[in-house]
Design a binder for these strands. Structure first.
Lengths: 222, 222
DNA sequence: AGAATTTTTTAGACTACCCTAAAAATATCT
DNA sequence: AGATATTTTTAGGGTAGTCTAAAAAATTCT
């Protein structure tokens, strides 16, 4: 049984949405918004995916990936993230330029290729945005870090990833001089708007809005 | 105007066939055989390609690429051959393992990607089978070498490429120990069956059938 | 040249994936 | 609980790309 490019995109969307909202059931409208297809189109596809045992679908009740569907989705995500590493590390693309190309490359079908690419890249654990790369067995061994605004305390952190992948946001981070691996020292948290006064790598202090802080993933600096 | 993956494959087929037979007009049946589609399907597609000004099509008279069609075909071929270099040089695939994967990768759409890949690979002029790689302007600066059987004289040659890309043929060459760059010394040409008695890199003598000799591209060793 | 064969096109049909409009089911509000 | 609003599905239709069968055009054979 072959899984088409379009089907792969639906499975990936369902996987992403179910993790985004920490709910196992994903609704037709959520998928429709995410993929920018009409709800009727999504219903059509859900029936086909259910037919192929890639999802469990109960009309009007939303969908859930089966184990087979989950494995397929994870594999696509693994490929996407490995290709992103290739584009940034080897071809020297900027981290805000790689998404669209990786969206195409993620559908290339060859297990041998992915295995060799993984080795060529040095079996990376994270992609250029700090997202963990599933291993060949579909296991996510590394856990995603917490956003800065959930650490409700001063202290020094390391910037390890982002929650938001839009070009606009990534370019904003670049323009304020923030790169993966930088130290972020939280000097103050403003009560009224939850903005953060921070220092990046001992430079001058600046402010992060709560929106920015919620999309920056950090670990506590050791 | 976007050109679909399927359309790209038709354009590539037309380009390849017109060069294969040194004829500018390619017939419906030739395309149908090459792509393993039915002739009726091909006719359908030819109408669509003509509509898009990618080919000149006169019913019952065969087709010819327009300049636009030629540029598109060459670009796909450039991508295919660059990806083959990547697979062999960087990911250490064998030359008989890369065709199917490159058939997928050739449709990835990003000029920036191809330019950077070209640089990353050191702007190669030939792919792993000795086929010349068109430059970014669609020019083929290197000319394809001649097959061994067209040099009707003894002497020493360098093996620079193949005419036939099937796994079976490539594996045959590997099994007899022939690699790109090897020296081939022609000791005898048998009149009755046009087979060749040769030495590869000063090893023991062996025979090439005319079929093998016609698919091995060589240059005269200086 | 006329008949037979081959090649190509037309006609009609199918699947995958998308759409709009309307109907049905579910959720929300008073 | 009943009305209203929202979500989801059904019904019907469109395009790209494939097919088979039959018709038309071109080529080959005698």
């Amino acid at each position: 049984m072959t899984i088409s490019l379009t089907e792969e995109n639906y499975l990936k969307a369902i996987y992403t949405l179910s993790h985004l909202f920490e709910e196992s059931e994903v609704s037709t409208n959520q998928i429709s918004d995410h993929l920018k297809n009409k709800a009727a189109t999504v219903t059509d596809m859900l029936k086909r995916l259910a037919e192929k045992k890639l999802i469990n679908y109960i009309p009007y009740q939303g969908v859930k990936l089966t184990e087979k569907g989950r494995r397929t989705a994870i594999k696509v995500i693994r490929k996407h993230r490995l290709w992103e590493v290739f584009l940034v590390d080897k071809l020297k693309f900027k981290w805000d330029e790689v998404h669209e190309i990786a969206e195409q490359l993620e559908h290339i079908n060859s297990d041998e290729l992915i295995q060799r690419l993984d080795e060529f890249l040095g079996k990376p654990k994270f992609d250029p945005h700090g997202d963990p790369i599933p291993d060949a067995n579909g296991q996510l061994n590394s856990v995603k870090a917490l956003p800065l605004n959930q650490h409700k305390a001063k202290g020094t952190f390391v910037f390890v990833g982002v929650n938001e992948h839009s070009k606009a946001f990534l370019q904003h981070l670049t323009s304020i001089g923030l790169k993966i691996g930088d130290a972020i020292k939280v000097e103050e948290i403003n009560e009224f708007d939850n903005s953060f006064k921070v220092k990046i790598n001992k430079n001058n202090s600046q402010f992060f809005s709560n929106k920015v802080a919620s999309n920056i993933l950090v670990e506590i600096k050791k």
